[in-house]
């Protein structure tokens, strides 16, 4: 249990707010954060706050979810190409599963990912939804 708490706690900033890194050498935007830039192999560098905007690169709908994700099934998982470059995998939300299309503009929201039973932690993190109009 303690290991499980620490594992999730360490991911709070990237999961809640899409905070990654920017390589100080080549300025490649990195997500998730890591020790070495995947683009130029230099040491990765300071925090970078992603805008949360991107487009759907590909998607699929999960009808047989892994353990812990049954409550929200069926749900759509997408490869999202962030405006700043990186591609990440995330659930889509606030959209009908049949209405998702490649190229759909999406934005990051923080939602419930899973609950560890009735007495455990509630895990929150990023998902993406179709971009909303301001007015």
């Amino acid at each position: 249990m303690t290991v499980e708490i620490a594992r999730h706690w360490r991911l709070n900033s990237q999961r809640y707010s899409l905070i990654g890194e920017e390589c100080p050498a080549c300025h490649y935007k990195i997500f998730p954060p890591r020790d070495v830039c995947p683009h130029c192999a230099e040491e990765a560098g300071p925090e970078f706050h992603f805008s949360g905007n991107g487009t759907v690169f590909s998607h699929t709908t999960v009808h047989t979810p892994p353990e812990g994700f049954e409550a929200q099934s069926p749900y759509t998982v997408a490869l999202v190409k962030l405006d700043e470059g990186p591609m990440i995998t995330a659930q889509l939300t606030d959209v009908d599963n049949g209405a998702v299309e490649i190229g759909l503009p999406v934005e990051m929201v923080t939602r419930k990912l899973a609950e560890q039973g009735d007495e455990g932690l509630i895990l929150y993190g990023y998902k993406f939804r179709p971009q909303m109009a301001m007015a």
Partner: peptide
């Protein structure tokens, strides 16, 4: 609220 929403997610947005 949707399946992935609660008072905390509403508050964050």
């Amino acid at each position: 609220a949707g399946l992935d929403e609660d008072t905390i997610t509403i508050s964050i947005e």
